[in-house]
Simulated assay, not measured.
Amino acid sequence: MKKIGFSGTLDPITNGHMWVIGEARSIAEEVVVFLSENSTKAPRFSAEERRAIVLESCAERRWDNVQVVTVKSDYTARVARKHGIDYLIRGIRTTADFDYENLIQQTNVEVIGGAKTLFVMPPRDLGSVSSSFVKALEGPVGWNWTMKKFVPGPAYRSWILDWLHKEWQSMWPAGDDAAAANAQAWFARLTGAEAYGGAERHYHNLDHLVHGLSEVRAWSANTRPAQRDVDIVRAAFWFHDAVYTHAAADGVSNEEASARLWLESDLAWDSSVADEVAQLIRATDHFQGGAVTHPLKDIMLGVDLAILGQDQEVYEHYARGIRAEYAHVEEDHYTSQRGQVLAHLRGKAEGRQLFGNRWFADQYNELAIVNMTRELATLGSVPGK
């Protein structure tokens, strides 16, 4: 078969969609993805953005025989025939899918004279994966780690950047065009290659940013603090790892450099806020932050350390990311230094001193002990056990 088509809204494209496209490639020389631009739907991304995500996702897998065509105000099956395609391919996950797709297939062929449909059944692990399923994951703490398993890399990155952009915009007052332009420029800078979006950021990256801001949301929803306190913690978390290098410049720590970057941004919506946010950023320096005082310090540290108390899969992703960020460190030295840090943090957790805020302690302390003990065992040393 020379050509085969695959259609969908693809908002976002999922690993299930990618599997169907892969099946299409196995039986045809060329695959045409027909991207529906349906005026009755309100997709997260525009048709052009979705087209770019699909192409990037295919390029990531080195699929160079896939093209994307946007369908506007027409039947996909009829557009397919205009492109010389006699067959569309569709994934069938359930009997309900079959009943629906069979009705569409009959309409395509008998009513509008369009392309016929071939049905394929995805493997069990993709049987429940759909765009609506992926969308429903967004929100709770850890949602991004779960979503990552079900969508290709470009779709995941686009989704979390869109989520982060909405989070960012909600922090700044509307109505001042100059301030809005400044905020937008700083968003691009913080999520770009020189900060959280950098290729060498294996843990202190966009994932870390999404997770921490989700933690702030959860803390806020469960404890109902003043909105001003929430906004101060959010701003501090956005900037706390903005500067992250292995060698401090001129003796200035990453935390101090990040605090200075925040002050440089001129984003504070209140003159008293600037120094408060800078203080919270400095507090995340776990070696020298003990000298920093602020009423929200325990909240900020709780958000930053909450990763230690996640489920095993997320924690191990974090541990691998930390190792990758220190790939330049020889294994024996890394094992020794990492072991000392973990033993120190575990000791604090065992003494109920790791999380100074009760809400974070109740959520994460016990699992943090389990996670750190397990990692210490993998390092070949379990101090104090």
Rank of each mutant, 00 (worst) to 15 (best):
E101S: 06
P140Y: 04
S381E: 08
A199I: 09
L376H: 09
G197W: 09
E48N: 07
E23R: 14
A319M: 14
V243E: 13
V303N: 12
A155K: 07
A115R: 08
R228T: 13
R217V: 03
E350P: 11
I53Y: 06
T117A: 03
S214H: 04
V216F: 04
N38E: 04
S26L: 03
R260V: 03
A77H: 11
G290K: 10
A174E: 14
A115F: 06
D125V: 03
Q340M: 06
K149N: 07
E23F: 01
T14A: 00
H344Y: 13
P295W: 10
L379H: 09
H211N: 13
N15M: 11
T373L: 03
S381I: 00
S381Q: 08
W159R: 10
S272A: 15
D86H: 11
E138F: 00
E200M: 09
N102D: 11
L164V: 04
K116Y: 12
A361W: 09
V273H: 06
T284L: 09
G8S: 01
G198Q: 13
F34T: 07
A343D: 15
A377T: 07
D74G: 04
A283D: 14
A24N: 05
R189H: 14
I307G: 13
Y100S: 02
I53V: 14
E316Q: 13
